[in-house]
C-alpha cells in the first residue's frame, strides 16, 4: 500500500516525540450542520486523527452514550451519502487530518462495497474501522479496501491472545486500535498498568502504531495512555456532551472545549 494520511500523521507524531489524540464523533450528531461544524473545528481544537461514526440502528458493540448519539444522528436524517458529502466538504479545507470512518457493516453492504470504497476514497476518507468484520470475514471489505488504498484498522482486544493476534494484525494497516477493556464503549476503564502491558505485547507483534481506546474519559486518563501508546482514542466522553443541555452550538462548543483539554494533556504526557 502507498503511504496514507494516517501513515504520515503517525510519522509526524513520532518525529515530535508525542502521542496523538484520536477523537470519535458520530456523523450527523446532534444534527448535520452542527456535525459539519464540529468536524471542521476538530483539527484546530487538537484532534490529530478524526474517527467519524456512521450511525446504525443496531450498534451492538456500543454503550448507551454512543447508542444515543447514533439515534440522534439517524433522527437528524444522516445517511451514508450525506456522511461522504460531509467528508468531501471537510477535505476542501483540510488536506492533512486523517479521517477514519467507523461503524457497522450493514449500511456499507447495502450501499455496495465497490461503490462505497470508490466514493469514500474520492471523498477523502483515509481508513475504515468496521466493528463486526473480524479477520475471518476479510474477503468482504478488508481486502477490497486495502486494494482501493484505504487503511483497514483492526481492533485488538484483551481476549485476542498471542495465538490469534497474528491473524488480527495480518491485514491491518494505518494503526492498530487496542480496545483496552472487554466490553462496550463508554463503560469500564482499564488500569494504566494493564494498558502499558497490553501496548508492550502488541509492539512485540507489530511495527504499526497502537491507538488505545474504550473507557478514556478524562485528560488524566488520556495522558496516562499517551505515555505508552501512540494515540489515545476518546469517544463516549465527547459524544455524551452532544446529548447534554443547551443549543446544538453550545453542546458543540463544550465538545470542542474538552478536545482542547484532552489535546493539551496528550501533548504534555511525555514531557
Amino acid at each position: 500500500m502507498t503511504e496514507t494520511r494516517i501513515d504520515r500523521r503517525f510519522a509526524a507524531l513520532a518525529a515530535e516525540g508525542r502521542a496523538g489524540l484520536i477523537t470519535f464523533v458520530t456523523a450527523g450528531d446532534p444534527d448535520l450542520d452542527t456535525s459539519a461544524r464540529i468536524l471542521a473545528e476538530l483539527p484546530a481544537a487538537g484532534a490529530d486523527i478524526i474517527e467519524l461514526g456512521m450511525p446504525f440502528t443496531d450498534p451492538m458493540a456500543d454503550g448507551p452514550v454512543i447508542q444515543a448519539g447514533n439515534q440522534r444522528a439517524l433522527a437528524a436524517g444522516t445517511t451514508l451519502p450525506k456522511i461522504l458529502d460531509m467528508v468531501r466538504r471537510f477535505r476542501e479545507q483540510d488536506g492533512e487530518t486523517p479521517i477514519v470512518l467507523m461503524g457497522y457493516y450493514n449500511p456499507i453492504h447495502k450501499y455496495r462495497v465497490p461503490r462505497f470504497l470508490a466514493d469514500a476514497k474520492a471523498a477523502g476518507v483515509d481508513g475504515l474501522i468496521v466493528v463486526d468484520l473480524p479477520p475471518e470475514e476479510d474477503g468482504e471489505l478488508c481486502e477490497p479496501a486495502l486494494a482501493a488504498g484505504l487503511n483497514f484498522i483492526r481492533l485488538a482486544t484483551p481476549t485476542t491472545d498471542d495465538r490469534r493476534l497474528p491473524a488480527v494484525l495480518r491485514n491491518t494497516s494505518g494503526f492498530v486500535y487496542y480496545v483496552s477493556v472487554a466490553g462496550i464503549t463508554g463503560t469500564k476503564s482499564a488500569t494504566a498498568e494493564a494498558t502499558r502491558d497490553a501496548v508492550a505485547r502488541l509492539k512485540r507483534h507489530t511495527t504499526l502504531p497502537v491507538g488505545v481506546g474504550f473507557g478514556i474519559k478524562t485528560a488524566e486518563q488520556a495522558a496516562a495512555v499517551a505515555r505508552h501508546a501512540d494515540a489515545a482514542v476518546v469517544g463516549s466522553a465527547l459524544v455524551g456532551l452532544l446529548g447534554g443541555a443547551g443549543t446544538a452550538d453550545e453542546r458543540a462548543d463544550r465538545l470542542l472545549g474538552l478536545v482542547r483539554e484532552l489535546s493539551r494533556a496528550v501533548k504534555e504526557a511525555r514531557r
Partner: peptide, 20 residues
C-alpha cells in the same frame, strides 16, 4: 467450516467475541 450456507451465515461479530 466457516459457517456459510452458500453466501449466507458467517461470523460477523466484534473481535472481543471472536475467541469465545
Amino acid at each position: 467450516e466457516r459457517g456459510h450456507f452458500g453466501i449466507f451465515g458467517g461470523r460477523y461479530v466484534a473481535e472481543t467475541l471472536m475467541p469465545l
